[in-house]
């Protein structure tokens, strides 16, 4: 029986995006444990549509849509990420050691996206399931139209936080500039908080002293003319 190949290395320099992604897909299909990706040079669309289990380590920054439309992938980005990192992740984990630009983890469907630094606007937008964890601050409209799952922001959150969320929960350790429409602040339970602290410790992120918990208040689930002031903003 052939031994499982543990590791391959890929140098992106001079290679076409299609070639890079095919290399990664082949490695995952061959059952390779890990690919170390050198010189990602903040290129767009690195590691798209990989659906076999594999661990990827990017030694540098990545551009738009890194580790997107993937399933069962565990990726570590030793740098910062452009827009839409972890887009539509089904299951698996993406850890960004630096910051992430706008729309981090858009339409996340499962698994976990961890940004140790800060994220830009519209992060966790349309989140369907899974966890988005932000070690630093989050830009405006984070959690917009969130559907399920959890967003954890250890730092501050900018305006319209969780606007029009259908379901799910957002935890914020720092200041919130402004709540979005249809959002209520509730008390986070001890079990919730213990779980968050344990989760953050696993990524070496220092938890804040406490968390505010935000959920959907249900006002936008159905139109009611009494709530006109809110609907004026959202329709």
């Amino acid at each position: 029986m052939a031994a499982v190949e543990n590791k391959r290395t890929l140098d992106c320099a001079g290679k076409a995006t299609a070639e890079i992604n095919q290399f990664l897909r082949n490695a995952a299909a061959d059952g390779v444990n890990e690919v170390e990706v050198l010189n990602p040079q903040a290129r767009h669309n690195l590691a798209v549509s990989i659906t076999d289990p594999i661990r990827l380590v990017f030694r540098g920054h990545v551009g738009y849509y890194a580790v997107s439309l993937c399933d069962h992938v565990r990726a570590e980005i030793l740098g910062s990420a452009g827009w839409g990192v972890g887009d539509n992740l089904m299951e698996g984990e993406v850890v960004v050691h630096g910051n992430a630009a706008s729309a981090a983890a858009p339409s996340l469907r499962g698994g976990r996206v961890v940004i140790k630094g800060s994220v830009g606007p519209r992060s966790g937008i349309g989140q369907k399931w899974g966890d988005l964890i932000v070690g630093g601050d989050a830009g405006y409209m984070t959690g917009f139209m969130m559907q399920k799952g959890r967003i954890v922001i250890c730092g501050d959150a900018a305006g319209s936080l969780g606007d029009s969320m259908y379901d799910g929960a957002i935890y914020v350790g720092g200041e919130i500039t402004e709540l979005g429409n249809g959002v209520a602040v509730v008390e986070a339970g001890k079990e919730d908080l213990d779980e968050l602290r344990e989760m953050l410790a696993g990524y070496g992120i220092k938890p804040p002293k406490g968390f505010k918990k935000l959920i959907c208040d249900g006002t936008l689930h159905h139109f009611d003319k009494k709530d006109f002031d809110v609907w004026k903003e959202v329709l």
């Binding site: 738009y64 839409g84 349309g126 329709l235």
Partner: peptide, 28 residues
């Protein structure tokens, strides 16, 4: 629930981003 869909894509906004989004979908 009364579902109201968003009208703007979550992760690209205009013509400048379109080629990058297209490349992603071509890859997929």
């Amino acid at each position: 629930v009364d579902q109201r869909s968003p009208c703007r894509h979550p992760d690209w906004l205009g013509a400048d981003d379109l080629p990058v989004k297209l490349e992603q979908l071509r890859e997929a």
